[in-house]
Design a protein around this nucleic acid. Structure first.
Lengths: 123, 123
DNA sequence: AATAGTAGTAAACAATAGGTTAGCGGTAAC
DNA sequence: GTTACCGCTAACCTATTGTTTACTACTATT
């Protein structure tokens, strides 16, 4: 017997538990303040340290450095040092795994735009 | 003249800036450790304080309380006190705006599952 | 009368994230 | 020679976040 005249949930009980666990894992990896922004910048062609720092507004070298190390550990960027270049150049490149985040980023970006409109309209 | 033989970016430069700004806004609102998990639980039919605390593994009353206040301010839950009930009952209900997060949650949940499989397989 | 649940709040504290400043070794341009 | 860019790193500090414990006021059950 199911609750007779109540709001029907947007997610079933099973989906709830599943979603709770899965989003917990996802947020653990990509939920940081900077993580996805770095990923977006790398996917957009910004591969160098200082280029990334310039592109991502407000990030400090210290934080960028430690975030890049985490991302590398998780396989979300690949760090490549080009030794044969005149000044040795370090590049952070997207991987196949990075590209699996495209739908997540798109969904977030779409929602973020809607939310911005909502906020700016009401004030 | 565009870079001749390089990896072509997954996002264009314009999309990059757009995505950076929009996801920044989105993460500001829903990027917290608990935010989306509470939203999922509320959308799944868990409407009461203690029910939420039981459902969301590891959250303390203090944090749940303050997160619910934030969510209410952002219009992502509605706090309803049922005064006519024998013991006064407080409910946290999803709103229309909450439901705009469905795609975001789905995308995150799908990615989180994939990521979990990836991690458990390699160890 | 005692216990337990409901919906929290207060206080005190610990942990983590993030920011600021400074600097290093190298190259290259002025 | 001095300045500046590159890719960082160390030390230090602050702010946010989260934890624990205890407690409130009320109701219902045993």
């Amino acid at each position: 017997m199911k609750r007779p005249k109540e709001i029907k949930p947007a997610f079933t009980e099973a989906r709830c538990a599943q979603h709770l666990s899965a989003t917990e894992d996802a947020i653990y990896v990509i939920g940081g303040k900077w993580t996805l922004r770095i990923v977006i910048a790398v996917m957009s062609g910004h591969h160098r340290f200082n280029d990334l720092q310039r592109t991502i507004n407000g990030i400090s070298a210290r934080v960028l450095s430690s975030e890049l190390k985490d991302l590398e550990l998780n396989g979300l960027v690949e760090r490549v040092v080009l030794v044969d270049q005149k000044p040795v150049v370090t590049e952070y490149l997207p991987t196949d795994y990075t590209r699996t985040l495209r739908e997540v980023i798109s969904a977030l970006a779409i929602w973020g735009e809607k939310h911005k409109k909502k906020i700016t309209n009401r004030e």
